[in-house]
């Protein structure tokens, strides 16, 4: 599902990071660990098609991301990769439901309210569908972010420090949700974190040094 080959990224300050090759099977769940400054977020952006590497290749669902044009990459990312960020950001002027609809239409799908309701139901926040996102608590916002990452049934779900702002209880809950939902959708899950609380939940680990 996800494969990298000799990835290298050079920052504008001429600092170059070489990343270990990764190979994640379809449906597998991975933890990408490392202290800050080891290029975790950069790697996540590289495999998410948000940033282009200077060297090496990224394969997602057998597609080489490097070869895609900017617009094609945007479309591919929208359809096949769901990303949950550390801070949950949304389009402020839209409600929870509208944000999810936007994710569907931007990826080139038509809006599917049943799918949205089903997802929100599974994440236990279906009653917030018509709320503005800034009215929600941190935990609720993170759930909406998960719902948004899942809404287009992507093959690959990436999560960037999804738990660092959460307390232990919320942390466990969010990880459990990510795990079960990814499993249910048959998606590959890669969580980037420096949060050592998560180590116990995952068998597959990639460690950056």
């Amino acid at each position: 599902m996800l494969r990298t080959q000799q990835l290298e990224y050079t920052y504008s300050g001429n600092k170059t990071i070489r990343f270990p090759d990764i190979h994640c099977e379809k449906g597998s769940q991975w933890l990408l660990l490392g202290q800050s400054g080891t290029g975790k977020t950069t790697l996540l952006h590289l495999i998410g098609g948000i940033r282009k590497p200077q060297k090496g290749k990224v394969f997602v669902a057998d597609q080489v991301l490097n070869n895609l044009s900017s617009t094609a990459l945007d479309q591919f990312r929208g359809k096949n990769i769901g990303i949950v960020f550390q801070q949950s950001h949304f389009v402020q002027s839209l409600t929870v439901g509208e944000n999810l609809q936007l994710a569907q239409t931007l990826a080139g799908h038509s809006a599917d309210l049943d799918r949205i309701k089903d997802l929100l139901n599974r994440l236990n926040i279906v009653d917030k569908i018509n709320d503005r996102t800034n009215r929600l608590s941190q935990g609720e916002q993170q759930r909406v972010a998960i719902a948004r990452a899942l809404v287009n049934s992507p093959g690959l779900i990436l999560a960037d420090e999804p738990t660092s702002a959460l307390d232990d209880e919320n942390c466990r809950e969010v990880i459990a949700l990510l795990e079960t939902q990814a499993k249910e959708e048959g998606a590959t899950l890669v969580i980037v974190t420096h949060d050592s609380r998560l180590k116990e939940f995952f068998d597959h680990k990639i460690i950056l040094e």
């Binding site: 900017s70 945007d74 479309q75 929208g78 990303i83 950001h89 389009v91 931007l106």
Partner: peptide, 19 residues
Amino acid sequence: KDRKYELALMRVMGASRNY
């Protein structure tokens, strides 16, 4: 300026530059 992150987010969700 306030919506910069929003716009980046929309790109992540599949919106092109032209959009």
